[in-house]
């Protein structure tokens, strides 16, 4: 008996080791798994949630969501300066629509915005919480052992001196999530909206998430507006058609504005209004976009003008501090 055990001692040790490892992975997964739903970029989501949590509860009337097209085009300070409407930009770089949903869901816990503006470029990025949605086996493993999915959880803990330099944190309390860029790099291509682009459609994952966002807005009595910010290199007529088609078939009550079709109307000048050759608006372009968006929102939705309201003095101070509007 003893020699039998001695013979297989190392194998038994190996089995115990592997068993112990699995137990450890499961326990750690339970500990670090976020209470929210599945997200792709948990650290950015948490950074945005923390930044928005600093806002006074029930003080924001409009929220802008989406990826970098959103935070480069939609300026809450301009909207306040011109219309007195308070808003916040929840956009983040390459933010997937599943993460937009998560940030919005968290935002609704502290705020009751009347309008949610979702920039549409995010609908055509990968929307799944997984890096590669086709890696079925890997995704299954990450579902069972979320430690692998959220293993960068430690990155939430950074010194204040470093956090202050983070692009989503720095000046967020002043600019409310908008990132102003004055660099000019012209777009020199032609009329990208009149060029025939290959047919496309919104991916299934993104369509499902969009439905969730619509339900979320309805549940919180907010109106959803889809907006396509000007982007010569990212947007085209095929994407426009895909959004229109989906909305017609699934959510005709949701408004849609494609500013790429109103460039002349709002005076976008591609030689001056883009920071990176047509991908994103710069500050000059965003001013024109927000002129239009501000008019649209106040004409179509009952949004309060908080200028001259002493409860919103901090907004006045921020507009003055920014010195842009």
């Amino acid at each position: 008996m003893k020699s039998y055990f001695e013979k297989y001692k190392k194998t038994v040790h190996g089995i115990i080791f592997v068993g112990g490892l699995f137990a450890l992975l499961i326990i750690l997964s339970l500990v670090i798994k976020p209470k929210s739903g599945e997200v792709y970029d948990i650290n950015t989501v948490q950074m945005k949630c923390e930044a928005t949590a600093k806002e006074r509860a029930e003080s924001i009337d409009v929220a802008f969501a989406g990826n970098s097209e959103s935070y480069r085009a939609f300026s809450p300070l301009q909207l306040y300066a011109q219309k007195g409407v308070t808003s916040y930009n929840l956009g983040a770089s390459a933010l997937r629509v599943c993460d937009c949903r998560e940030i919005l869901g968290n935002f609704f816990k502290q705020q009751s915005p009347k309008v949610i503006v979702l920039e549409t470029d995010t609908l055509f990025e990968e929307g799944s919480p997984y890096r590669d949605p086709d890696a079925h086996l890997t995704n299954k493993v990450e579902k069972k052992l979320p430690l692998f999915h959220y293993h960068t959880f430690y990155k939430r803990w950074i010194p204040e001196s470093v956090k202050e330099k983070d692009m989503y944190w720095k000046d967020a309390s002043v600019f409310k999530g908008f990132l102003a860029e004055t660099a000019v790099r012209p777009y020199e291509g032609g009329d990208y909206m009149s060029v025939e682009a290959p047919k496309t459609k919104i991916r299934e994952t993104n369509r499902n998430v969009l439905k969730d966002i619509i339900k979320l807005c309805e549940k919180n009595s907010a109106s959803l507006v889809l907006v396509s910010a000007p982007s010569a290199t990212n947007w085209n007529s095929a994407k426009h058609a895909a959004v229109v088609k989906w909305l017609d078939e699934n959510a005709p009550q949701v408004a849609y504005l494609d500013i790429n079709e109103k460039l002349d109307e709002i005076g976008i000048d591609w030689a001056n209004d883009t920071m990176d050759g047509g991908n994103h608006m710069n500050l000059y372009g965003s001013k024109k976009v927000m002129d239009y968006i501000g008019d649209y929102l106040t004409e179509n939705y009952a949004l309060a003008d908080h200028r001259n309201d002493s409860n919103y003095k901090d907004w006045e101070d921020n507009v003055r501090k920014a010195g842009l509007y």
Partner: peptide, 14 residues
């Protein structure tokens, strides 16, 4: 093993 799992540059964001 946990050092590799936690600090490895793989998955979301990489």
């Amino acid at each position: 093993i946990l050092a590799v799992v936690i600090f490895g540059a793989y998955g979301n964001g990489y």
